[in-house]
């Protein structure tokens, strides 16, 4: 995982509330067996016209949005399925952070595990960011993970929450699996005290 420390970028505003994982990446794009090519399906339902051509009105298709790394999303982002294809698709397009007032639990966890930073802001800040972007679409904001702050163009700073463990992993670019593997002796000890109640392998037909 690529470390995340600070990020300065212009914003891609997508004010829709309750953007669910079927909006982020529709199920028909989930037949891949790797993580490649998912950016093509990002927001596909809104991004393409029925004939498959790009919808020029959709924000992601505007030439000036290319290369931006922060999605300014509406309230309650990422509800729905557990598909990790959602953060993979967002990152494939180039996003490294999403700002919203609230994230669905599974999406939030999936994002953190891939180096996509979900930034939770209060409603007043959220409203203000949309107002600022509307007035001046090319404003830049800075996300500073060590201090957990989001800096607005006028210099004001708001803090955002993140648990210490995830923050550490993001800053160092650590895969959380490494942490679990380090604790294997404890897992083995637990298993000695809690033997499995069944073995599904009896289901294998030869």
């Amino acid at each position: 995982m690529e470390p995340f420390v600070t990020l300065t970028s212009k914003l891609v505003p997508l004010p829709n509330e309750n953007v669910d994982t079927d909006q982020i990446i529709p199920a028909r794009y989930l037949k891949v067996t790797d993580k490649q090519g998912l950016a093509e399906g990002l927001f596909a339902g809104w991004r393409y016209l029925p004939d498959g051509s790009p919808n020029p009105d959709f924000v992601l298709n505007k030439p000036e949005m290319q290369g931006r790394k922060i999605l300014l999303a509406g309230d309650n982002f990422g509800t729905g399925s557990s598909r990790e294809h959602a953060p993979w698709a967002l990152m494939g397009w180039g996003f490294r952070a999403v700002i919203s007032t609230r994230f669905a639990d599974i999406f939030y966890n999936n994002a953190l595990k891939n180096g996509l930073l979900p930034v939770i802001v209060d409603e007043a800040t959220h409203r203000r960011l949309f107002q600022l972007v509307e007035a001046e679409p090319d404003i830049e904001v800075t996300i500073d993970l060590p201090s957990q702050t989001l800096r607005l163009p006028d210099g004001t700073e708001v803090t955002f929450p993140i648990d210490g463990f995830s923050k550490h992993c993001l800053l160092k670019g650590l895969d959380q699996l490494g942490y679990l593997l380090e604790h294997m002796p404890r897992i083995e000890a637990y298993e000695r005290e809690h033997p499995p109640r069944f073995d599904t392998r009896v289901l294998v037909r030869r």
Partner: peptide
């Protein structure tokens, strides 16, 4: 509960998962 694919890998490898208590 549902988990993402990174966590599927964690469970396959360790039979455990990292969770904050809900």
């Amino acid at each position: 509960f549902g988990i993402g694919t990174s966590e599927v890998e964690h469970v396959l490898a360790t039979q455990t998962i990292l969770q904050r208590k809900p």
